[in-house]
Design a protein around this nucleic acid. Structure first.
Length: 805
RNA sequence: GGGCGUGUAGCUCAGCGGGAGAGCGCCCGCUUCACACGCGGGAGGUCCCUGGUUCAAUCCCAGGCACGCCCACCA
């Protein structure tokens, strides 16, 4: 064995072995307690990023821990068809080949997508494997599998049957590039430098006077149908009820009043354009105003724009402004910085357009989910995210679920020549209403999140009553990033409750967002992304897992490679202490024979570490769990225990050898969930080892807690061993130095300088005496606090006496 | 405009009513027989500011300053 641990090669070998030996596999119905994670399906065209890597590390450490603890673990995975992303990728590919989506037509395009996915898709699962994710890859599912499609159709028809899915003409977010509607959640907002134009709209009966409005989009003036002011706005009191003339189109429209107009913005007068602005749309509906549209789905001026038809909005704006200026109606034009909505994928400016779309009503659908959240039947961690999730759900607006793209779940909606709609899971022969034939299917597809909402149970076979569904639903937990709460987590919860009367999982871990080292968001387009595969290549999967878990926290953290390096060092340290033990155990078999002080001490420390690990994993606190592993390995196991037993190992003391092997086994087990590869590799080198560590039973505590009384008051390893005179590998001078060390403790004992320790103890005694002399403290503090203080005082006095003698 | 959160050692972060900590970095000394991805020693901090509560505050409360994220229809 080389002194330097090299993960390359070792890790791939174990990943292959574990999978080939079926150790990742899960089978329902073992009767054992279950631990189930339906891992978020990555985009089928996606590549591993740091968020995935963290998410997998979190989930896998819990999965492996539970597997060792004897749970029936199902770590399930698969792909999302990712409608818009995938369509984009394939369209780009077509353009490179000199053709286009439109040229090949819908049917052929969908075939091409499938071919393309077979060729280029699905690479990410190999990357999951490279991290050591112990998923049941045999059960991989895809959101476009036949069975999955049936589940999605069932869901739609069910909601439609309850009257919770409906079609309506409303203003929606339109992406001119993708030529589809988008939900609010698929937008990003960006600040831009723009201009705010103040224009006077003359009164029809007094062209010299009028109402001055302010607009950032003069091109939409053509679609104005009213001017609105706030009812409390004195400035415009006289204008209400009169009519003004819209510039350029010279149409006469009323001046109305509405509470929603902000008197403090601009001039306090709002031009109302229901066709091209969400607020105006609502005003228009409430005041029964006409809805005019002058911008088309391509983002350019349409036929209704008359002589401006076909122009870009910028060109149209110039023409309108020129017209206004000529007639002296331009009051002013000022620099204006505001935020605009962009498509999150292509960054095109979102065009608010009126469009006939399908909607999912949320008011009733969300109620059981709200109740489940409030009652804690599903729990978000950390707690702050639980409150946010409830809040988001309470405020969830109706959901636009239709998209005008080609790749996705086509709506199960058929229209007959008379315009009647038939909604069924499979194609109906005739119209449900009039019985006529010749039905045509809706061209729209469903929002990808509509199908994702079924993930944790659709992959188990729902709506069929399968053994998997029976055994693994509700699952245990789901891990995800904060921004996915509304898009996915809440939707899975209400879907599960609606369709099965059951929550789909019990816990949701909202994990840290890992930012780039400079504090910016990791993003491919910013160039701040970080390739986890590169980290794995350089430091190993174990180190990468350890590092990401160490970084994870309750807040966002900046990436620092130091954390990964710490993991690499830990793997190396473990490797080397194993070499020490394996090279010096002779024929011994692992067995606990704790006799010497150092053996009783390390048993106690391993118990403590194991208990801490359980607490931290149980609370989903990964960073302190990693710290505990690091310190028990470096400080306790290597620095003190291994050093202390060296002479006995070398001297052929069989008790020491057998116990060392047993302790090493325990340490490997504790480390395995976080660092599976290096621990399995060492495990395979232990004498007479036939089973795999991945399925080895989690150790029973040695019950060494009873020993705690012996060690607890002494507080530090250094003191334990100083008193016992153990550290025999060192010569006298080194012994003196070592004796002076109190490494794992903050109390600094300079053994070569007794005065300093005496000084420290005197300080402690003085502080404790002061507190105990303080009547208010003694009277008001809880009894056990005062008692603890008394005990401390006595202990300090004893230690001082011992030191003095 | 709302909501949430963060300001602790040079860096990345723990701790959260009675001792100011970890890893990395830095300085000094060690080719010690598992490991220089190591061992030992050390320097380095008005725990953002100002008030308040408390016998006691980095920790609780109020205000301020500075950052970050999310939400929102300010044309």
């Amino acid at each position: 064995m080389e002194p330097l641990y090299k993960p390359q090669g070792v890790e791939e070998r174990w990943q292959r072995t574990w999978e080939e030996e079926g150790l990742y596999g899960a089978e329902p119905g073992s009767g054992r307690e279950t631990f189930v994670i339906a891992h978020p399906p990555p985009n089928v065209t996606g590549a591993l990023h740091t968020g995935h890597a963290l998410q997998i590390s979190l989930a896998d450490v819990l999965v492996r821990w539970h597997r060792m603890r004897g749970f029936e673990t199902a770590f399930l995975t698969g792909y999302d068809h990712a409608g818009i992303s995938t369509q984009n990728a394939v369209e780009k590919h077509l353009v490179e080949q000199g053709t286009s989506r439109e040229a090949v037509g819908r049917e052929r395009f969908v075939e091409i997508v499938w071919d393309w996915l077979r060729q280029y898709g699905g690479t990410i699962m190999g990357q999951f494997r490279r991290l050591g994710a112990s998923m049941d890859y045999r059960r991989e599912r895809f959101t476009m599998d036949d069975a999955y499609i049936r589940a999605v159709m069932r869901f739609f028809v069910h909601l439609y049957g309850k009257g919770w899915i409906y079609r309506a003409n409303r203003i929606i977010n339109w992406c001119p590039h993708h030529q589809t509607s988008l939900s609010d959640l698929e937008l990003v907002h960006e600040e831009v430098d723009d201009a705010l134009t103040h224009v006077r709209y003359p009164f029809s009966d007094d062209p010299e006077d009028g109402v001055t409005i302010a607009t950032a989009r003069p091109a939409t003036i053509l679609a104005d149908v009213a001017v609105a002011v706030n009812p409390g706005d004195e400035r415009w009191r006289g204008a209400v009820g009169r009519e003004v003339v819209i510039p350029f189109v010279e149409r006469t429209v009323p001046v109305i009043e509405d509470e929603r107009v902000d008197p403090d913005f601009g001039t306090g007068a709002l031009k109302v354009t229901p066709g091209h602005d969400p607020l105006d749309f609502e005003l228009g509906r409430d005041h029964q105003l006409p809805e005019l549209t002058v911008i088309g789905p391509d983002g350019r001026m349409n036929e209704a724009a008359g002589e401006l038809a076909g122009l870009s909005q910028e060109e149209a704006e110039e023409r309108v402004l020129a017209w206004i200026k000529e007639r002296g109606l331009l009051v002013k034009r000022e620099a204006y910085r505001h935020s605009i909505a962009l498509c999150e994928r292509c960054k095109s400016r979102i065009e608010p357009l009126i469009s006939l779309q399908w909607w999912c009503r949320m008011d009733e659908l969300k109620q059981p989910a709200l109740a489940a959240l409030k009652e804690g039947r599903v729990r978000y961690h950390p707690e702050s995210q639980h409150r946010y999730a409830i809040d988001s759900l309470e405020n969830a607006p109706d959901w636009n679920i239709s998209r005008q793209i080609w790749w996705g779940h086509q709506l199960p909606v058929w229209e007959c020549p008379d315009g009647h709609l038939t909604v069924e899971e499979t194609e109906p022969g005739t119209c449900a209403e009039c019985g006529s034939a010749g039905l045509t299917r809706s061209e729209d597809v469903l929002d990808t999140w509509f199908s994702s909402a079924l993930w944790p149970f659709a992959i188990l076979g729902w709506p069929e009553q399968t053994a998997e569904l029976e055994a693994w639903c509700p699952g245990t937990l789901n891990t995800t990033a904060r921004e996915i709460i509304r898009l996915w987590e809440n939707r899975m919860i209400f879907s599960g409750l609606e369709l099965m009367g059951e929550v789909p999982f019990r816990h949701v871990i909202i994990h840290t967002t890992v930012l780039a080292a400079d504090g910016r968001r990791m993003s491919k387009s910013l160039g701040t992304g970080l390739d986890p595969l590169e980290l794995i290549d350089r430091h190993g999967a174990d180190a990468t897992r350890y590092g990401l878990l160490k970084l994870s926290s309750s807040q966002d953290v900046r990436f620092s490679e130091g954390a990964i390096e710490e993991g690499r060092k830990l793997a190396n340290k473990l490797w080397n202490v194993s070499r020490l033990i394996l090279a010096n155990v002779g024929e011994a078999k692992p067995e606990q024979r704790p006799q010497a002080l150092e053996e009783r001490w390390i048993a106690w420390r391993l118990d403590q570490a194991q208990a801490q690990l359980g607490e931290h994993f149980g609370a989903f606190d990964f960073s302190p769990a990693m710290s505990a592993l690091y310190h028990v390995t470096f400080d306790d196991f290597c620095d003190w225990y291994a050093e202390a037993i060296k002479p006995r190992l070398y001297g052929g003391d069989e008790d020491a050898q057998a116990t060392a092997l047993a302790n090493l086994e325990r340490l490997l087990k504790l480390l395995h969930p976080a660092m599976p590869h290096v621990t399995e590799e060492i495990w395979s080198n232990l004498p007479g080892r036939e089973t795999r560590l991945i399925v080895a039973p989690w150790p029973e505590p040695l019950g060494a807690a009873a020993e705690a009384a012996e060690f607890e008051p002494i507080r530090t390893a250094a003191e334990v061993f100083r008193r016992a005179g153990v550290r025999p590998t060192l010569d006298e001078e080194q012994q003196r130095i070592f004796d002076a060390v109190v490494k794992p403790d903050r109390a600094k004992v300079d053994g070569g300088n007794v005065e300093a320790e005496v000084e420290r103890l005197r300080g402690e005694i003085q502080r404790a005496e002061q507190m105990l002399a303080n009547e208010r403290f003694v009277q008001n503090a809880p009894g056990e606090v005062v008692e603890a203080e008394r005990e401390k005082l006595e202990r300090y006095r004893r230690e001082l006496d011992a030191l003095a003698s």
